[in-house]
Structure formats: C-alpha cells, structure tokens
Amino acid sequence: MKVERQDLTAQIEGIKKGGYDYLVKITAVDYEKYLEVVYILRNTEGSQDTTIEVELDPGDAWVPSIMGFYKGADWYERELYEMFGIEIKGRHVERLLLEKWNGKIAPLRKNFVWNTPYETSD
C-alpha cells in the first residue's frame, strides 16, 4: 500500500487498531531517482503481512518516528538513519553500527563506492 508521508502516522494508527500488533521490519531501498521506506506489519492471529511504502526525495529525506506505536521500531529507525541518511523526526537518533564514521555518504546508498578512504576518529 503506497502512502504519502503526511498520512503515515494516521495510517499506522488505523492499522494497529485493526489488529496488526507486530512490527516485522522497517527497511529502505534506494532506487536511484527516489528512496522508498517500507514498513512491514503482521497480524499474529491470522498470520498476515501488510506492507506500507513511502516514497522520499533523496534531497529531502525524513520520516516521522513510529516509536509511540511500536517500541520495537527503535533500532530499525537508528539503522535507517545510519545506513541511508534518512532523518527521523520526533526523537533523538544515534548511530547504531558504525560509531566512528566520518564519511559523507551513507553506506547503503548507490553512490557510495567501495573502498573510498575515510578516516575514523580515534
């Protein structure tokens, strides 16, 4: 289901009331013209998955935080911030996996080339 960024929190609240009580994953894919953030939710009684997709412009990449609805979104959002450079509005996010990273491009974007030299702050 494709959703605009401003309707995101309302949609997730509606889905959570509809019985989807388990967050599976928050991922992102970098198609080169746009970024797509994917939320995957599950209904444990009926064992069904739904996906919600939000398209973002690479220059203006931010999503609101859904930690108020699912506490498990904490580390997924931190990983999104670190690997893709997508900011999370609504809470203070810190790096998760690469604590001393000084490079300018986030690692999982397509314009990050392997073995570019970067300095770690020691």
């Binding site: 599976v24 994953k25 991922t27 894919v29 994917v38 995957i40 498990g72 904490d74 580390w75």
Partner: peptide, 27 residues
C-alpha cells in the same frame, strides 16, 4: 528470519535481512 529481496536479472538489487538476534537484543 525474514528476507526482502528486490531482484535484478543477474544480481540482487537490494537484500534486506531481518535477523532474529538483532531484535532480541534490542529488547
């Protein structure tokens, strides 16, 4: 384990892995 694969003809375009230990440690 949940895998989300965006497939291209010869290589994966994006493979996203949801590891069980990751989310157990977050709790």
């Amino acid at each position: 384990c949940f895998m989300y694969l965006v497939a291209d003809p010869q290589k994966p375009y994006r493979l996203s892995i949801r590891d069980p230990s990751f989310i157990n440690l977050a709790a």
